[in-house]
Design a protein around this nucleic acid. Structure first.
Lengths: 213, 213
DNA sequence: ATATACAAACCGACTAGTCGGTCAAAAAGC
DNA sequence: GCTTTTTGACCGACTAGTCGGTTTGTATAT
């Protein structure tokens, strides 16, 4: 439906335009004048909908992290073992990725420019997200699915890094889909951390494609 | 020797100060006036040593990527098998990390603000770096050390992502050293991609700590 | 009448970059 | 060896322009 574009409110147009421009040129590479020009509105329209340019940046951050957090929690709750939970969380991120592509770039590259109180708010949600993954890793170590020698912290950051970094190189309409990429990531991550016991669980097979013996 | 600090040239002081400030507040969060103020020099001193603020940003980028590239090439050349090469390359990055910590943050967060011709220059070197890793992965697949089913591209980006992301969470003087982190990374990555044959090679044992059977 | 949703002109603060000038040290002339 | 000349590193007041944000005005809906 192309009608969606015509129905957009001014606020939606501003957000949409800002996302495009921020992703291309960075937060400080785009002026409010340029945003309102491209979004076909005015300074008045902008400041009627947003308290400040900083507030717009914050909103972009918040929309993204809040959505990731919500989806990750659902993924975690709807599965009962660490292997399923971990893979479901990665898939949740994948699904977010295609739609929130622009948000992600802004989120990771421009967060230095957030005002202190905004930044604290975002940081809290990022920490919450990290702890969700740490929790699953820790659980997996205790249940014997993941090797007990691995460091929860390093493993978590390795996974987050691997997954998040895709925003730097992934292109929609490229040769690789996020679905494919996640398939490979799940395989590689699990091989890196599961125990023999974990590997032999029936639900692990769907993620680890083959085992060369 | 603390005398090093007293011997710094104006240009070195500017670079040093800019790195500190850019890392903390981002490129556009710092004015030239602030840089020259902290670096105990002047506008004249600044523009005598740098063509523009953009040129300073470029120099920071170039110093970093050129060094990484050089070290990676050495790591690659001084080993003869893919497993040793890959791990040596990761260690090379590790060693760079402690010294070029500030460069890395600027490199990954502020590259959007590089002027087009500067950006093209940097992009070329990043591509060269990526191809070095892709080459090793590809070689490993052909030699039977790495599983042939893995995607060279995705695996390479997974590794780069995992490693690069450390700049977002690693703190010097923290509980974890870069040495330790790289040890875990090497272990996790190799487990994710080696074949049984590769695993049984004697030189693989030093990276893969243990195998739970 | 009053509130809402925008438009357009406007403002002051700030910024990157310039430019005439200083000064110490090296090079040249004697 | 001593003076003169030249060079280049560096200074800081200044400028032209840009930016985020404000204010005033206006059309519409209730």
């Amino acid at each position: 439906m192309e009608g969606q574009k015509l129905k957009q409110t001014v606020k939606e147009r501003i957000l949409d335009t800002a996302l495009d421009l921020f992703q291309q040129k960075g937060y400080h590479g785009v002026s409010v004048d340029e945003i309102v020009d491209v979004a076909k509105t005015s300074k008045g329209g902008f400041y009627h909908n947003f308290k400040s340019k900083d507030a717009l940046l914050y909103e972009i951050h918040d929309i993204f992290i809040s959505h990731v957090l919500a989806e990750t929690k659902i993924a975690c709750k709807t599965h009962s073992n660490p292997i399923d939970q971990l893979c479901a969380m990665l898939y949740a991120f994948t699904n977010v990725f295609d739609v929130y592509n622009r948000h992600i770039t802004v989120f990771y590259d421009e967060s230095a420019y957030l005002q202190p109180d905004y930044k604290a708010n975002i940081k809290q949600k990022r920490t919450e997200y990290r702890r969700l993954i740490e929790g699953v890793i820790e659980e997996g170590k205790q249940s014997g699915h993941f090797r007990s020698e691995i460091s929860t912290r390093i493993t978590t950051m390795a996974i987050i890094g691997m997954v998040n970094w895709t925003y730097k190189w992934y292109w929609r309409n490229g040769e690789l889909s996020m679905e494919q990429i996640t398939l490979y990531f799940n395989d590689m991550i699990l091989r890196g951390i599961v125990t023999e016991q974990g590997f032999n669980e029936s639900f692990a097979k769907q993620y680890i494609q083959s085992k060369v013996v």
